[in-house]
Design a protein around this nucleic acid. Structure first.
Lengths: 162, 162
DNA sequence: TTTGAAAAATAATGACC
DNA sequence: GGTCATTATTTTTCAAA
């Protein structure tokens, strides 16, 4: 593949500062961003566009409190699946309501799905009716989430050189 | 607790439309948002502020591609912990670099940590040196993430009545 | 990459239905 | 809740250095 600038893009200090600010506040004005990152506005525009074109910044979104928004019951559901069924299962999970995130894993389990439903009844229905019914799913194991939190965010961004 | 308007806030149709748009595009202008949600701009300001005060909208952020930003190795790490150690472990995980998200679970495992490191060596170091060294951690089990994706987003938001 | 200028768009507020 | 009007800011582009 030719180097079209989209792959193997190495972040420099300016990129990292921009990312840090945009992760902390996705609606920050370009003015404020440029100031905080110690660059000109014009430069900020250029860099942000480049980061988006490179696929490093995928987009911007609102962070919603699952619980306060009505999704009070969350769980991880491990799926044991047939060897050749990952692709099909993946396609279905992408559109299954209340599925937040899912991963194909190495090790004892095959697929780990993070689901968030309005309540335990909804969770139960989701697991028993939808997940276990997916073509290729052999068995499921569910762990309720009692409490959760996020890590420190992109602290690693300060620790790299360029 | 008195009803200060911050708790038990029930979303109506307008709130849901606003959230949907802001999740899809966190930097959308209030103008465009108001148009898409079929409300006036003034109304949009009021609603967004209310949603933020109620803690439903926690903030805004850039969605970063972990892989393209240099975090190519991700894994789930299950921690088996001492009964009384959750609080302390939680506090430490909040500041531990490369920790993305973690949960206190019911069931066989105690804590599930999602970590993202630059490479497998970094991942190994993180698990062996940092996570296993946390006070209260008895043992760890690691599952590498080969592939991952997100669910459909807030589709459930359309399916509720008010 | 930076700076300054300038037009267009948007934000934010307040008065009034 | 919605509409309108107004002013302050910001965005965005461009030219110049």
């Amino acid at each position: 593949m030719a180097d079209d600038g989209l792959d193997n893009y190495v972040l420099d200090t300016v990129d990292r500062r921009i990312i840090k600010e945009l992760v902390a506040d996705g609606r920050v004005s370009i003015r404020a961003l440029a100031t905080k990152a110690n660059i000109s506005r014009a430069h900020a525009y250029v860099r942000i566009e480049r980061l988006q074109n490179a696929g490093i910044i995928e987009g911007f979104t609102a962070r919603i409190s699952h619980e306060r928004a009505g999704l009070g019951a969350s769980a991880f559901v491990a799926l044991s699946i047939r060897q050749d069924s990952w692709r099909g299962i993946s396609e279905q999970l992408r559109t299954l309501p209340f599925v937040d995130h899912f991963s194909l894993l190495g090790g004892a389990f095959d697929v780990l799905v993070l689901v968030r439903a309005p309540d335990n009844a909804g969770l139960r229905n989701l697991v028993l009716e939808r997940l276990q019914g997916l073509d290729g799913v052999r068995s499921t194991t569910t762990w309720l989430i009692f409490e959760e939190a996020n890590g420190p965010g992109p602290t690693w961004i300060d620790e790299q050189t360029t």
